[in-house]
Amino acid sequence: MTAVISVKDVTFSYGGPVVLEDVNLDVEDGEFLGVVGPNAGGKSTLLRLMLGLLEPTTGSIEVGRRDPSEGSRAIGYVPQYPPFVRDFPITVEQTVLLGRLGTARAMGGYSRRDRDIADRVMTETEISNIQGRRLNTLSGGQLQRVLLARALASEPKILMLDEPTANIDVRVESDIFELLRKLNQRATIIVVSHDIGFISQYVERVACVNRTLICHATLAIDGKVIQELYGGDVHMVEHSHG
C-alpha cells in the first residue's frame, strides 16, 4: 500500500491556541478513513490543511507526493457548510459542471465529455431528476448529493467529506454512506464525522482528533478510547432504525 496523503509532524494554530499538535497521518491508497473527535477538536482544520486551504505552522503535508496547493486538484471536496448563498442563480446541473474546472479546457464552454461525466455522476448520486432546479429549492439531503456530484465530476482519486450528513435525517445519512461505500471501490475516502458509532459501520480505520491525532482500527474502538477522545463518559445506546 502507498500513502496518497502524508501528514508529518504538523502543528497548526490560527494565531491563538494550538489547534493541532504534532499530527502524523498516512492515508493509504483505497482506504476509507473516518476522522472523528469532539467539536473544535481540529477535524475540519486537518481537512483544510490537507486541501492546501491552510498552511501548517510547522511540519509538512504531501498529497500525491506534491504540495497540497498542487496536489489538491486530485481531491474531490464536500464542505460541511457550503460557503455560497443558497439563492445564487445557478441550477443543479451547472453546479455539478463546475466540478469539471481544472480538468477540462481552460477557455470557452464545456465539452461533450464534460457533459457526459456530469450526467454520469448525477445519475450515480440520483439527482438527474432535479438537474434543472435551483439550489434554494432543494432539501438538505438533495443539496448534499449535489455537492457530492460536484466533487465527483472532477473524477477525483481522493474524496474528502466534512460532516456530510450533519444537517440531514438518519435515513438519508445511511443512503449517502452506502453510496460512499460504492465510491470507495474507485477512490480513497476521508470522511469527517462527530458520530463515531455511525461511521464505524463503514470505515476501516478511525483517526481520533482532539488537538493530537491517534489512529485506531475500527474494531479496536471501545469505551476507553471514546472516553479519552471526548474527555468524559459517553453512553452507547444500541438501537436499530429497522
Binding site: 486551504l53 471536496y77 463546475l98
Partner: peptide
C-alpha cells in the same frame, strides 16, 4: 461563475 459562486471551490479546482 465559479469565483462569483464559490471562491473556495474555485481555488481548489
Amino acid at each position: 461563475l465559479a469565483v462569483a459562486f464559490d471562491e473556495e471551490f474555485a481555488r481548489l479546482r
